[in-house]
Amino acid sequence: MTQDTLSEAEYDAITDAAAHWCMRLHAADCTDEERDAFEQWHAAHPLHAFEYEAMLEVWEVAEHLPRPTPALTAAPRQPSRTWRQYVAVAAACALALPLAAYAGWNLGWLPNSHEHFSATDEVRRVTLSDGSELELNLNTDLTFSNYKDERRVTLKKGEAFFTVSHDLAHPFVVRAGEGKVRVTGTRFNVWMYEDQVRVNLVEGSVLVSSDRALPGDGLRLGPMMQARYKHGDYIPQISQTYPDDAALAWRSGKLVLDNLALNDALPLINRYLAHPLMLADSRTGSLRVGGIYNIKELNNLANSLPKVLPVYLTRNKEGNPVINSMPQQPPKS
């Protein structure tokens, strides 16, 4: 099988495999061995990555469809379908796609447009189909879907600055982690690392919720305010910011650490690193660090830390660098 010439059977096999891996990687019982096998398959051919990304787009849209109400009496269990049968069903459904898409749009179930944007080693500026403008920080991945009753961004990882086009009847919602940010037209920044999310409002007004499953639209932020939340937070933590706040320095290619404890600094640093820095213990985490860094050169930060802090580096069994504080000198007698 070569990249230039693929038979129909080879192409169908790639589509089947992409569907298989999309289902397995979203399954609760997916094993580490399966994930390793997926990585090998994904890297084996350029079309593998292309087909898998296309399958993910379908999966994400399908997640927004309403779930059917279970019947009171369970029907006899049917034999599970093979992957080829799933592909056949998908092909049959495609014949009715225009009518289904029109009905889904009118009911607010399906978007009439779905876009995917990412930035890797450069800050990227994009314009959404609704006219909203976004700046994407390094290592950022998000999607935009335009529904009848709302415009929806899903921030998968990273950070983005939003300048949202005003549309009072068509709210703009950013989903990040387990929470959401709801606006009609404004300028704000959303940062996410693992399960931590931070929202900084520059202009306008937003509603921030730390759990989309809870009723209501959350707490209201005004200009120069910040909301933080993480997994399990019932409500976001709200604080005041200032015109010279360092949270938006990334738009100029900088990371500003203003005398932060390493506990607070590492989430800001690690999102730029291929191998995140780890802390040996809480005492190390209490050490403070400051400075202004180029976001493209943060991979060099780990080696420079022992020059500015009383620390040394080791590596854990996963190969990640670990910061250790120097042993305290016993008091002289």
Rank of each mutant, 00 (worst) to 15 (best):
G253P: 05
T314P: 01
D258N: 14
D233P: 08
L107H: 04
A247C: 04
A9M: 05
R283C: 03
A44N: 06
Q40V: 13
Y272D: 08
L214A: 13
G108I: 06
T73F: 10
Y272I: 08
L255K: 06
P310K: 05
G216E: 10
E122T: 10
Y147C: 04
L25F: 03
N146L: 13
T143D: 11
M192F: 04
P79E: 04
G285W: 06
A9Y: 07
V87L: 15
A103V: 14
L298F: 02
C30E: 03
H20S: 06
P111H: 10
R24T: 12
R124A: 07
N263I: 11
A18P: 01
A90V: 07
V58A: 14
A75S: 11
A103C: 10
C22V: 03
M278R: 15
W21V: 05
N263L: 06
S80V: 14
Q3M: 11
F161P: 01
L266E: 00
W109K: 03
A96E: 14
V289L: 05
A91L: 11
G232M: 03
F172P: 14
D4N: 10
Q237P: 11
A62T: 09
L136I: 02
F188R: 13
A92K: 04
H45D: 00
A94K: 15
A227W: 08
R187N: 06
M1F: 15
T184G: 09
E115W: 09
L138F: 06
L56C: 11
M55T: 06
D211A: 12
A176K: 12
T163C: 12
R288N: 02
G218L: 01
D281N: 12
L138D: 06
Y234M: 14
L56M: 08
L313W: 00
W41M: 02
V289E: 00
A75F: 05
K296R: 09
A27T: 00
I269K: 00
G232R: 03
N316R: 01
S132G: 10
A74N: 01
S325Y: 02
C22W: 06
E51W: 08
E53T: 09
M192C: 10
A246I: 09
L309G: 04
E57T: 03
R220P: 05
S145Q: 15
R175A: 14
I235P: 05
G232Y: 03
N137Q: 05
T127C: 05
D36L: 09
D29P: 00
P321H: 05
E33H: 03
E115Y: 12
A213T: 12
G290L: 13
E57V: 11
T140A: 04
D211C: 06
D130N: 02
A19L: 08
S333R: 15
F162S: 11
Q3S: 12
V164W: 08
L287T: 02
E33R: 10
P223D: 06
L313H: 00
Q78T: 13
T184F: 12
Y312I: 03
P330V: 08
Y293T: 09
P243L: 08
R151L: 07
H114Y: 15
A176T: 07
T5F: 15
E178R: 11
L25I: 07
T143H: 07
M224L: 12
S165K: 14
T314F: 00
E33P: 01
S113C: 12
S165L: 12
